[in-house]
Design a protein around this nucleic acid. Structure first.
Length: 497
RNA sequence: UCCAGCGUAGCUCAGUGGUAGAGCGGUCGGCUGUUAACCGAUUGGUCGUAGGUUCGAAUCCUACCGCUGGAGCCA
């Protein structure tokens, strides 16, 4: 009998052989002998506790420096911010070719990991074989020197090879993982709400239409208007602006659910905080009031900050050094401090008493402007603030009406530098009140029959919120433009990549 | 969509009506256990696009496009 470790080891070997046979079959003998999916990552090599002989590392060359009898190559494979220094001696059979390697080229290196005699790194890889996998033409736009984010945005396909964007997208991955961990640990069920929907669920935001109709010859009604009953879904359909309504249906069955997926808004918004395609996290909890909702939102924000602080330390150091010098202090401050919580009315009073001159008026029934939110988070509280119980006329139909008849159980979580990062509410669970709200918002209750059914059959108090994934990522990285935390950003007039 | 600013070499920028510039990068050579290496030479331009004013426009005017900051909408 094999023990478990032996079985795992054998399975791994089998898999490697299969992979290797596959590539040899596909590429014949052109592939380097050392080309293995099991290559050592730069990250593992750098973290090594002892010298290691006979390893393979593969990646992209950041820079090459020649010395008298050898070359230094800096090799990066994206496994971490850091690059591995490779020593290529002139005794290598293809040293002439190695000296032609330029920034951006891809190589595979076989050799021994040894303690580095130079300053600046603990380990270096002394190569006994270097395979040049793919050369880089001398027009390769990335230099060793820093580039502006604006320039890198124009080469979105190459920018993940830069230090800054490598860090951003490693943290993005970790943050997404942390979101799932947070909810899964707390017994939430992950629900995939539809991307294509028929309902303009919040009445908020312009929608992208989804259609299979030929724009050159659309089916028409007698009056000449386009007949969408002849369209693919036999009705008007759109890309989702929120999974909330569907999440409510699942919360009223599985109790605690969350969605995490793409969201689309066709707003002509040209700001550093808006994108046409972004990701949103929307938890929805049955038997949960506004207090529980706010508690969860604050707990989530803190959890996510703590997670990337602990698990992306090296990347976070880069942000602190090159993006925002106060980043780490601000994040730690947020972790240490109780989030502030005030009602809309209290917030308005604070603003009125502030003595501060604002461009826009403050007053009951008026929306808080960016400058007001900024004053509250950045000047007054100097910490995240949750504002709740807003006037009903400035909030959507589904929010629960308070007993005062004037305010609804809305809550916005504001953070310094970004503004609104979470928006949520307790939902109106009373059928009659919800129908009244809909009529007040000039909506036809008949078109929302399935949503109203949730109030007809076993209605329960329930709450939820939306957390903007990219805004959270901006907050934890200090990156100030949303286009720089999305791999291939979609904004008005821009979808090149 | 609104307000303001910007658009000059691959990148970062100087050049305010009279011959198109620098640093970095690239290329070539030298030096060197180097670290955003160093030294020398060299390469590099439809001055965002289209009109207009002028003897003459990178420079002044108009429109459009793009980017940046702010506003609205929101996550």
């Amino acid at each position: 009998m094999l023990c478990r470790a032996q079985k795992t080891s054998r399975r791994r070997q089998d898999r490697h052989q299969r992979t290797r046979r596959y590539f040899q079959h596909r590429l014949g003998n052109q592939i380097p002998r050392m080309f293995r999916l099991t290559a050592t990552t730069v990250k593992d090599a750098m973290q090594s506790s002892a010298p290691r002989s006979d390893i393979v590392v593969q990646g992209w060359v950041r820079t090459r420096r020649d010395s008298k009898t050898f070359s230094f190559l800096e090799l990066n494979d994206g496994s971490s911010l850091r690059s591995l220094q490779v020593i290529a001696k002139d005794s290598l059979p293809n040293y002439g070719e190695v000296q032609k390697i330029t920034t951006g080229a891809s190589i595979a290196v076989h050799g021994d990991l040894v303690a580095s005699p130079g300053k600046g790194q603990r380990w270096e890889l002394v190569a006994d074989r270097i395979d040049i996998v793919g050369r880089a033409e001398d027009s390769y736009p990335l230099q060793k020197k820093g580039h502006t984010p604006e320039f890198l945005r124009e080469i979105a396909h190459l920018r993940p090879r830069s230090n800054l964007f490598g860090c951003v997208f490693r943290v993005r991955s970790r943050l997404a993982f942390a979101i799932h961990t947070f909810f899964q640990e707390r017994g939430f069920v992950y629900v995939h709400t539809p991307i294509i929907t028929a309902s303009d669920c919040e009445g908020a935001g312009e929608l992208f239409r989804v259609t299979a109709i030929d724009p050159a010859s659309p089916p028409r009604r007698a009056d000449g208007s386009i007949d969408y009953t002849k369209d693919f879904f036999a009705r008007c359909t759109y890309l989702t602006v929120s999974g909330q309504l569907e999440a409510e249906a699942f919360a009223c069955a599985l109790s605690k659910v969350y969605t995490f997926g793409p969201t689309f808004r066709a707003e002509n918004s040209n700001t550093s905080r808006h994108a046409s395609e972004f990701w949103m996290i929307e938890p929805e909890m049955a038997f949960c009031d506004l207090q529980g909702n706010m508690d969860l939102a604050e707990e989530l924000v803190k959890y996510l900050i703590r997670d990337v602080r602990e698990n992306c330390a090296e990347d976070m150091e880069l942000f602190a050094k090159f993006v925002d010098r106060e980043l780490l202090a601000r994040l730690d401050f947020v972790l240490d401090r109780q989030f502030q919580r005030v009602t809309y009315t209290e917030a308005v009073e604070l603003l009125e008493k502030s003595g501060q001159k604002f461009e826009f008026p403050i007053g009951s029934g008026l929306n808080l402007q960016s400058e007001h939110e900024r004053w509250l988070t950045e000047k007054h509280f100097k910490s995240p603030v949750t504002i709740f119980n807003y006037p009903k006329q400035i909030k959507p139909f589904y929010m629960r009406l308070n007993d005062d008849g004037k305010t609804v159980t809305a809550m916005d979580l504001l953070v310094p530098g970004i503004g609104e990062i979470v928006g949520g509410s307790q939902r109106e669970e009373r059928l009659e009140v919800l129908e009244q709200n809909m009529r007040r918002h000039k909506m036809n209750p008949a078109e929302y029959k399935w949503y109203l059914d949730l109030r007809r059959y076993g209605s329960v108090p329930h709450s939820g919120f939306g957390l903007g994934f990219e805004r959270m990522l901006m907050f934890v990285t200090g990156v100030s433009n949303i286009r720089d935390v999305i791999p291939f950003a979609r904004t008005p007039g821009s979808a090149e990549f």
